[in-house]
Simulated assay, not measured.
Amino acid sequence: MNGKGDSIGKFELSRQVLFLDFDGVLHRLAAVRTRRGIASTSPSIRLFEFAPILVECLAPYGEVKIVLSTSWVHHLGYQRAKNALPPVLSERVVGATYHSKYFDAEMWPSRARGTQILRYVLTHRLTSWLAIDDEIVGFGDYLSHVVICDENVGLGDLRTQDSLRTGLSEQFG
């Protein structure tokens, strides 16, 4: 990826990671790829509409890095997905669960999101991590590490915001 955070060592063992999905989390519902780029599925939905909420929640946790666990990486590539985020979030991104160099691009989307994330957690020997996602399949016994979003409201839901604050405090506080 970017050289930082991809080697396994003492940095990895102590690194604090937030796995971030975009669709159903940072904005409601899913986005679609068009000839002009990525667009929301409804004119009433603004992409990344809830990014300011995530920025606010992460503010007390300056050491937390973001690993993209969104299908945007598979469809657009790592750099374009990372650059789609507001700069204050993008500068925290250190990697992604998907990398075309290591994974069969055709098989990857069929793997459960939890499976993708747990593979990254185990490969990088992470101990402090949290995922924000609207999918829970594949997390098994690690659901305590997941802030579950309803895809219809994402981080716009106050209870989900409370769950995120609690999860951040428990994992990184």
Rank of each mutant, 00 (worst) to 15 (best):
M1V: 12
M1F: 04
G3V: 12
D6I: 06
S7W: 05
S7Q: 10
G9Y: 00
K10F: 09
K10L: 14
F11N: 10
F11V: 14
E12N: 14
L13D: 01
Q16G: 03
L18A: 07
D21M: 02
F22K: 07
V25W: 06
L26D: 09
L29M: 08
L29Q: 12
L29W: 11
A31I: 01
R35G: 15
S40V: 07
S40L: 02
T41H: 01
T41D: 04
T41K: 07
S42W: 03
S44D: 15
L47F: 06
F48H: 10
A51Y: 02
A51Q: 05
P52G: 08
A59W: 03
V64R: 07
K65W: 01
I66Q: 03
I66T: 01
L68G: 10
S69A: 15
S69V: 06
V73I: 11
H75S: 13
Q79T: 13
P86A: 11
P87H: 09
E91A: 12
E91I: 10
E91G: 03
E91V: 14
R92C: 12
G95D: 13
T97V: 15
A105W: 00
A105T: 14
M107E: 15
P109V: 12
P109M: 12
R113A: 08
R113G: 07
R113M: 11
G114K: 05
T115W: 01
Q116P: 02
I117Y: 01
L118P: 05
R119M: 10
V121D: 08
T123N: 12
R125A: 13
R125Q: 15
L126H: 11
L130N: 06
V137N: 13
L143K: 14
S144F: 06
S144Y: 08
V147H: 04
I148N: 02
D150F: 04
E151N: 13
G156Q: 10
G156W: 09
G156Y: 09
D157G: 03
Q161H: 03
S163T: 12
S163K: 13
S169A: 15
E170F: 08
Q171K: 14
F172I: 06
F172W: 08
